[in-house]
Design a protein around this nucleic acid. Structure first.
Lengths: 216, 216
DNA sequence: GCAAATTAATGATTTATTCAAG
DNA sequence: CTTGAATAAATCATTAATTTGC
């Protein structure tokens, strides 16, 4: 086992232990057709897709040797996304329309649309929903403190109808500290690294969000 | 603002889903390897890269046509990553070597290497570190309950020297409830949706991990 | 000896917190 | 102070172990 090599490639973290785990399963390496993938080159991407290390060129003289990367960078003038009114407006509409945790496809679409109004990336959309949801909840909670009684039973069920089709209840989300929602996501890794990536998807079966918090 | 159109395009949240949580009866046969390997390719990419909605190929009557695969398919099971001994071994080494939250570049590298020992994706590596770190901490905490006194001040600074080059302190991570570490991640959204997928990245300047938490 | 039933591990997501740019 | 970004804690949900009845 080329641990050294491995570690060396990873730069730091030089392990060298004998990874002597308890050899429980006599499993022979199941590498089927698998190892053939472009192992060395960083052609794979997954996880949070395109996550990329923060440059943060400022402080910290990075000991990394890859400093040369010219500019490209995240051209948005500054470092963080600065949403425009249109973008916020659309996002809020979507939120009020019931959207909470859009999946990659949706994020892509949204990003594409919002891109017309200003620079934006998928992560911004993702974070926006995350934060907006969390902060709406906070707000709700805070305001409920000075409102000790009911407001529970017949909480405000804001029914919004968009396009004569969508109806969502605003409440029931902020109420329960922990929402029980079925999982609706799952990552998918594009195995093919040659050329045909991003083919086509077939989403389906997501839930919008728990209509009945189910007690608790 | 064209909410309708927008919503329509996004396939908006129809109030129908509810597809109750999977975890129904314990009787559900385990038919492994259902692996929606068919066409679940994703087209979008960003955020959590390759996230894709769960298709839940299981039940749904016998409408499933993929049942034919008599065996193996994607060897390790089906839906979730099932690490091999080698993979775990290497990951543990890296962990013990001090790695905690590898950045995208590192994850890519690690994934590529571990891919030689079995199917694996970047997200698996990412999650592994997340979970491992969290659970090590848990363990630490639990064990410390029956160990009320010190063990704080001069906590065990396990210095590991690997390959005569790396020296890491095991502690300092489990100690502080919240570690203040520089951000090291950032999503990058692949705007291109036509063909050129995962082109190439230009990572740089990452930190491996906070040697000095910088006193918060 | 199996295979269903149960339990233990742990992979995968979601939610809560925290940090810091503007 | 607002809020984008990031991390950690809490949870959910599978998969493998292990147990149990035949």
């Amino acid at each position: 086992m080329k641990v050294h090599q491995l570690a060396r490639e990873f730069g730091e973290y030089e392990p060298s232990l004998s990874l002597g785990c308890k050899r429980l399963c006599p499993l022979a390496p199941k590498l089927h057709h698998h190892q053939a993938s472009s192992s060395d080159t960083v052609s794979s991407f997954d996880l949070k897709c395109f996550i990329k290390p923060e440059s943060d060129p400022r402080k910290l003289g990075s000991s990394d040797q890859k400093r040369d990367s010219p500019k490209v960078e995240t051209q948005p003038g500054g470092t963080r996304w600065n949403p425009t009114q249109e973008q916020i407006g659309i996002l809020e509409m979507l939120y009020r329309g019931g959207m909470r945790t859009p999946n990659a496809q949706k994020i892509e679409q949204i990003t594409a649309h919002l891109g017309k109004y200003g620079k934006i990336e998928g992560k911004n959309v993702f974070y926006w929903f995350q934060n907006h949801k969390a902060r709406e909840r906070q707000k709700l909670k805070r305001s409920s403190l000075g409102f000790t009684h009911s407001a529970r039973n017949s909480a405000p069920i804001t029914t919004i109808t968009l396009d004569t089709r969508v109806e969502i209840m605003e409440r029931s989300d902020e109420d329960s500290p922990y929402k029980r929602r079925c999982k609706s996501w799952s990552f998918e890794y594009l195995e093919d690294e040659s050329g045909s990536p991003c083919k086509e998807e077939e989403n389906r079966t997501l839930e919008l969000f728990p209509l009945h918090p189910e007690g608790r």
